[in-house]
Design a protein around this nucleic acid. Sequence first.
DNA 1: TGGGAAAATCTTGTATACAAAAATCTTGAC
DNA 2: GTCAAGATTTTTGTATACAAGATTTTCCCA
Lengths: 211, 211
Amino acid sequence: MIADTLEELVFTGDFSDGDRLDEIRLARQFNVSRTPIREALQRLVASGLAVQIPRRGVFIRQPGLVELMEMFETMAEIEGVCGRLAAHRISEEALADLDTANARCTEAIAADDADGYYRENERFHHMIYRHAGNGFLEQEALRLHRRLKPFRRMQLRLRGRMAQSMAEHEAVVAALRAGEAERAAEVLRGHVAIQGEKFHLLMASLRRAAE
Amino acid sequence: MIADTLEELVFTGDFSDGDRLDEIRLARQFNVSRTPIREALQRLVASGLAVQIPRRGVFIRQPGLVELMEMFETMAEIEGVCGRLAAHRISEEALADLDTANARCTEAIAADDADGYYRENERFHHMIYRHAGNGFLEQEALRLHRRLKPFRRMQLRLRGRMAQSMAEHEAVVAALRAGEAERAAEVLRGHVAIQGEKFHLLMASLRRAAE
DNA sequence: TGGGAAAATCTTGTATACAAAAATCTTGAC
DNA sequence: GTCAAGATTTTTGTATACAAGATTTTCCCA
């Protein structure tokens, strides 16, 4: 529970890169002893959100731009794999569910409801992972998806990105429905890879604005 | 350090599925207090080798056959991805290194040196991960590779498997050298997928022998 | 004799105390 | 005034004590 709260704090940017997570201070903050804090910190380290330097403490570690791009590329490849497998394994009902999610996405765009859009978008991707028909792969995909969540949301703010994303979703469903595995893989891979590129773009423009 | 030892014990089969890892007993065994044992157990849980049930303890959790097959399939897909990326990104020197590793593998087969074969085989795969040119993907590949290690070794015992595996390795290098990304991906995927199938075969025959 | 409730025991989870290592501060010499 | 060595403080890592929940045992009654 404490680990989740700390994770939230890292994601929401309350901690910045290189900050030391002081056990005693956190213990006071959460009104517990150091022991549960240490367990929470170990979880953060295990999930890659922090690094532990022996006898020095644990430091939060925000991924740099290059690492983020690597993570987006990996996510794109994994989604591609899920798409290729799903093309062979997905059921008719599941395809209908994907259509439903997409319809709700379109509604959300019309209503200018970014949160709603994001929620249904997430459902869409989770369904693809699920219907790859490989529970282990699904878990790995979910893990990485979750890790990239705060960064993925940012690029959705770009003008016209939501509509573009929707079109890509529909191409994915079309390929899956046709059972065209390689096309499904390629479309999904591109759909995620472009998120990484858009994110990169966003960061570059932000950096330029800061100067 | 204790976590590594425990991991070893799990891999070498000193613990079987569902065993409870008694903190007090382990503490006595390692001559330390419960605190470091608890930290080690948390690591095992984080790496998926054990599950923790609150107020009940942590239990070791060997993956069942279906999960293992899922893991092999995932590994095959990830290696395929590494191969596809590496086909575009690998250097001439690295290709030469792959050849060297393969040559050593052949020698090891001639000398009937299973350990040596396995060591060079591992180097081969690690190099492919490395030259996919994506540090994050590399780490993920290494993680899964490591997790599957004890099971991968088993299938190498099958008669003729080492020679077959070697031929596949050479096909991989040929595709990489030609820069044929899709072929490299397919060959590598097949190379790992067949390991899963062989492993399945082995388990089935072992089960039949037990009856 | 079987079933169930209560007590005893065991085990996890948390707090705290202590040891060792790292970081910081102080003091002295040049 | 600056640098370095030693002392002090801070901080992590480990041991131990205690609390709360889970399990087992025991005992009573039908």
